[in-house]
Amino acid sequence: MLEWPLVFMAGLLGSSHCIGMCGGFALALGSSSPTLAANLSRQLVYTSGRVFTYSVLGTLAAFGGWRMAAAMPRLVNLPAVLAIVAGGFLVYQGLRSAGWLGRPAKGSASGCLAGSIFSTFLTSPGWSNAFLAGMLTGLLPCGLLYGMLALAASTRNLWLGGAAMALFGLGTAPVMVLAGSGGSLLTLAGRRHLLRIAAWCVVLTGLISIARGCGFLTLEAALVDPSRCPFCP
């Protein structure tokens, strides 16, 4: 159904382009930890909060996709449209981070009202606060996330949608944990290299999603169960 490895890869490599937004949070989170081990576990808890939110969002998106598909079963082939929309989103994001469509805007949550919530959670000690900070981070607007959610919506299955987003979230974990632990294991050149690979990986995921959607569109007649059509006997 889904390109599971690609979803994971999109998270893994795509996350490096999101570090501009979420990396700062991860760093702020780690700043109150005395040791590397404490910081690392705090980062893991933070990441699990994010993965939790992504899964919930994926479930919601899948539910939305299911409801929409149920509401207009024949008129529009919704999964295909969603897959294409998701692909478009991802391609756009990928090209943006690859530098093809101008520099991505530097997002910052500190300017908005929600910023105070984040800073409060990020700097408060305790596991629950780290988890909650991660949970809220997962709600931040992010183009990559929207693309993935559209993908999750196209599954029309709560479990699949949730799992896809969880996988995506897990994919983002390694880079974010590394960024938050302050371990700049990669050189600047290496990071730039990784960034480029990540961007193209996101583009690839998007293209596959679009191709899949187009495939659905042409296979429409064969795939759709005639018993679900309210207009056909």
């Binding site: 919930v56 479930t59 539910f63 629950s128 606060n129 909650l132 809220l136």
Partner: peptide, 26 residues
């Protein structure tokens, strides 16, 4: 157990409730 943690935990629990409800709905 600060006020903030209370709020955050409520968000966490509510998200769970939401997912369970979605499953019930489908």
């Amino acid at each position: 157990r600060s006020t903030l943690t209370r709020l955050g935990l409520s968000v966490f629990f509510s998200m769970n409730v939401m997912v369970f409800t979605l499953v019930l709905w489908t």
